[in-house]
């Protein structure tokens, strides 16, 4: 939010003069009308955090979309909006939406898609925090507020690169709730079930 403060005349002030006018205007008077601006303060700005932000939960800060460009990379991320947009090539996106229908595969999909995206974002936060004003572009984005809050809960100050005592890979898995371990377990049980069926 940008806050701009003004002093306005509440009433008409015919022949308004002030002893504290700048020397250039000393002795002069002005016909001030109701609503005219008499003074302007310095602007201030702050980030207004929503109390009931639907993006507060970590999974809500990601959105996965298809990239319909012919030369689309297998996966890419864009962090310029309020959500982290993960784009997949059309064939990868089709496979993703098909596999997402199976609940047991969600953790594996998160490991393959959300975790790498999150690690890339954490790396960019860490990099930005090491330069003056580096984080200012992120601060107005809602995904950043959510991640910064979660990092602080894990004892990491996102504004201080030295406080990243663990690797961004380790942090990413902690933030999402270690989908790798669950994902591997579920793939293993899937494989074992398959073997049993063959046997």
């Amino acid at each position: 939010m940008d806050v701009c403060s003004f002093v306005l005349a509440l009433d008409d002030l015919p022949a308004y003069r002030n002893k504290r006018f700048h020397a250039d205007y000393r002795g002069l008077s002005f016909n001030v009308r109701k609503g005219d601006t008499l003074a302007v303060a310095s602007d201030a700005s702050f980030i207004a955090e929503k109390k009931t932000d639907p993006l507060r939960r970590i999974p809500s800060i990601f959105v996965v979309v298809p990239n319909e460009n012919d030369d689309a990379p297998a996966m890419d991320i864009d962090t310029t909006g309020h959500k982290i947009r993960v784009s997949l090539s059309q064939s990868n996106y089709d496979a993703y939406t098909f596999l997402r229908q199976a609940q047991p595969l969600h953790t594996s999909l998160n490991s393959m898609i959300i975790i790498p995206a999150l690690i890339a974002v954490l790396e960019s936060i860490k990099r930005a925090s090491s330069t003056p004003d580096g984080l200012s572009a992120f601060e107005s984005r809602r995904w950043y507020s959510v991640l910064a809050r979660r990092l602080k809960e894990l004892g990491v100050d996102p504004t201080n690169p030295d406080s990243f005592s663990e690797s961004t890979s380790a942090l990413g898995h902690k933030i999402i709730g270690d989908p790798l371990t669950d994902g591997l377990k579920s793939l293993r049980s899937y494989e074992e079930t398959d073997d049993d069926e063959v046997a």
């Binding site: 959105v63 979309v65 298809p66 319909e68 460009n69 909006g81 959500k83 947009r85 784009s87």
Partner: peptide, 15 residues
């Protein structure tokens, strides 16, 4: 819807 808005934004060029 948010996801569709993001899909549109992602694909301005091919559209």
């Amino acid at each position: 819807r948010e996801a569709q808005l993001e899909r549109l934004r992602q694909n301005i060029k091919p559209n």
